[in-house]
Computed example of a mutant assay.
Amino acid sequence: MPFQRRSLFLAALLGGCLLAGHAPAFAERSERFSGTFYGEHGTATKPTGTIDALFYPAAHVLRYSMTWNKLSGPVTVAHFHGPARKGHDAPPVVLITGPYQSPLTGSVSLDQDQEDMLHNGTLYVNLHTSAHPNGEARAQLAP
């Protein structure tokens, strides 16, 4: 098949797939989640900030962007924790890599249990500082 005919054929095939609802991976749907940071574990500070995230189910990837301020000091480590509802603690399940400067963007892969936590509203972000090694700021993820 000559190059021009093959290119036209592939373009028509791709267009037909899109019209038929068989979108390629780059057109995958995403789900939006967000949360607002607040102080926890008896901190006297009044942390503020947000996390906005897009979850791509077919790839099992959560892409996030977060901002924070008004902490007692620099963030020393950050995690996604779960499963726990607001007001309850849970262990870390996914490390958020640094450097820990606001704003922070990145992505993590989630396993099926972590995806269930995300969809059930029991996955949260915890920002840890030297003054509050168990966590100073928390943002519960919700659709």
Rank of each mutant, 00 (worst) to 15 (best):
S7Q: 14
L8E: 15
L8K: 13
F9A: 09
F9I: 07
F9M: 04
F9K: 12
L10P: 11
L10A: 10
A11F: 14
A11E: 15
A11Q: 15
L14V: 07
L14Q: 12
C17S: 11
L18P: 02
L18F: 08
L18G: 04
L18C: 13
A20I: 04
A20D: 09
A20R: 05
A20C: 06
G21W: 07
G21S: 07
H22M: 07
H22Y: 10
A23Q: 13
A23G: 11
A23C: 05
P24W: 03
P24I: 03
P24Y: 03
A27E: 12
E28Q: 14
R29G: 15
S30H: 13
S30K: 13
S30Y: 14
E31L: 12
R32A: 13
F33G: 03
F33T: 07
S34A: 11
G35W: 03
G35F: 03
F37H: 06
G39Y: 00
G39W: 00
E40H: 09
E40L: 09
H41A: 02
K46E: 00
K46H: 05
K46F: 01
K46Q: 04
G49L: 01
G49P: 07
G49E: 01
T50N: 14
T50K: 12
D52N: 11
A53T: 00
F55G: 09
F55H: 14
F55E: 06
Y56V: 06
A58L: 06
A58Q: 10
A59E: 15
A59R: 15
A59K: 15
H60D: 11
H60G: 10
H60R: 15
V61E: 15
V61D: 13
V61R: 14
